[in-house]
């Protein structure tokens, strides 16, 4: 599904990713962990298409297409979904108009008919349940006045409606209390299937108790320095990242 090869990325002249390789197949959950400033969020944002990043070298292959050549909306319509670390408040645009536009744009891209109002609300009602959100959210402006937890749940709700093939969760767990964390993880787990894949970018091992990854990668200084299964996350929780720095230093 996704093949990132030797990716080098800079922002405002500072190189952040320094030759990152990662392959993600359908049905898999990959966790990307690493200390602050290691490039985790850069990776998530580059995949979603944020344009202030400059790709210096390498590439990203998504279902055989050059992902980096695609506009953000084309990526989204092709099934890439970024759950934002800091969801944006957009006063004046209702959740309902926003999601309906997004959903129908994606359907048109696939050559499908637009959903009518009834079908749309049917779908919305079902998906709101996934994240325990009230229907009243639909008439509110996007994220405006939402609590931190509501904003994160809203991200997962949008993911549920749009049914992406590749979901990238950018520190969705940061700042969540345990109840909200459970709701968010349940949502993600409900949506998992053999045809989609998830990249979970996180700072904390705690999330991985709920969303169990197939692979755990450690990102340091713009490279994946170690990969393993979920036990690697536990090891990191226990020992921190310093031991890896030493290990990487020795290999370098």
């Amino acid at each position: 599904m996704l093949n990132i090869h030797n990716l080098e990325v800079a922002i405002e002249g500072n190189q952040i990713l320094r030759g990152l390789n990662l392959e993600v197949k359908a049905g898999e959950v990959h966790a990307i962990m690493g200390p602050n400033g290691s490039g985790k969020s850069t990776l998530a944002n580059v995949l979603a298409g944020r344009d202030e990043y400059e790709v210096i070298a390498g590439g990203v292959d998504y279902f055989g297409e050059d992902l980096l050549e695609m506009a953000p909306e084309q990526r989204a319509r092709a099934g890439v979904f970024l759950a934002f670390q800091y969801p944006v408040e957009i006063p004046g645009v209702s959740m309902s108009i926003f999601l309906k536009t997004a959903l129908n744009d994606a359907r048109q891209a696939k050559g499908e008919e637009n959903l009518d109002a009834m079908e749309f609300f049917g779908l919305v009602r079902e998906k709101l349940k996934v994240v325990h959100m009230d229907e009243k959210f639909m008439s509110r402006a996007i994220n405006e006045g939402f609590s931190g937890g509501e904003k994160k749940r809203n991200e997962i709700f949008q993911m549920a409606v749009l049914e992406p093939k590749l979901a990238i969760l950018d520190e969705t767990d940061s700042g969540l209390d345990i109840d909200a964390l459970k709701i968010v993880s349940d949502g993600v787990n409900t949506l998992r299937n053999a045809d989609n894949a998830t990249i979970v970018v996180t700072h904390y091992q705690r999330l991985l108790n709920y969303i169990v990854p197939d692979f755990v990668h450690v990102l340091m200084d713009g490279r994946i320095v170690k990969s393993g299964d979920k036990s690697l996350a536990l090891e990191l929780e226990e020992k921190g990242y310093d031991w890896l720095k030493t290990e990487v230093g020795e290999n370098a």
Partner: peptide, 25 residues
């Protein structure tokens, strides 16, 4: 707002439509 524009586009809404929505808002 560039952040808002990116947010809308990242959900599959075309650039022109996204701009129109923000101006409308």
């Amino acid at each position: 707002d560039d952040e808002a524009l990116f947010y809308l586009r990242a959900r599959g809404i075309g650039e022109e439509m996204a701009k129109a929505m923000l101006r409308h808002a």
